[in-house]
Design a protein around this nucleic acid. Structure first.
Lengths: 131, 131
DNA sequence: CAGAATCCTCGACGATACTG
DNA sequence: CAGTATCGTCGAGGATTCTG
């Protein structure tokens, strides 16, 4: 952290806002949720998030790394291999993320019945074990 | 068969996305969090969220009402009085919201130490009781 | 495979003024 | 007090192309 920031006191209305600074946005909760099932490579995440672009995915991952919740490991080989996983700190978000998953499940049943589908690629087995 | 009548099945990558459809955005989690401490009037919420505009506040409240998590009660009197409170369904979000609050608290301590301030207007007493 | 570099869109969010 | 009604912005997110 640089000196400019050190002297500026951050002000939040509520600490919920601080959480949103880390996991807010369209993709971050989903990315983090997937990572609670283990390390993922860049392409795996892209397959799990068919509509995200490479640029945005990279941005989100970098910001999560910056926030200290995600670890990026580069294997020096050809073709390149990069793995993303939660840091210990990132794992402290697991409860929130899985509650969001559960609530979403219930919400889909309640709201859409069978007119909605959850791909959960490729987590079906892992989710079953997690519950 | 008419295409419009064909089931346009909603598709989610993960049910986390369904949750974000309801509580996603800059203000909604905060608004809902405040409401877990009881009914609030429009002006109360505005005081708690000094930077939100009336227009945006109204929009967010309407969307939350639409989603079924919030109840809006209009008292037919002059001056007008409108109260917002969680529905039973909205209360099922409490656990998520309070976890987000807790995580944010910890995150602020860890990241900013004493260089950050949480106003928590006017929840200090209520929060203490909630913990 | 995992990105970097550019350029661009669009809708969430905001500022301001007015009202029953 | 609790809103509407307009109009404006700006940046998160997206499309596309190129690269080690």
């Amino acid at each position: 952290m640089n000196n400019k920031e050190v002297n500026t006191t951050k002000v939040y209305n509520t600490s919920v806002e601080a959480t949103l600074e880390v996991i807010g946005g369209k993709w971050k909760p989903v990315i983090l949720f997937y990572l609670t099932f283990g390390k993922k490579r860049n392409n795996e995440l892209k397959r799990m998030l068919p509509k995200i672009t490479q640029k945005v995915l990279t941005e989100q991952l970098r910001e999560l790394e910056e926030a200290g919740v995600l670890l990026r490991t580069v294997y020096n080989q050809v073709p390149p291999k990069v793995e993303y996983e939660l840091t210990d700190y990132g794992w402290t978000l697991k409860e929130i993320l899985h509650l969001m998953c559960r609530w979403g499940d219930d919400h889909i049943s309640k709201t859409y019945g069978d007119n909605a589908k959850v791909l959960d690629y490729p987590l079906k087995e892992e989710k079953r074990r997690a519950e």
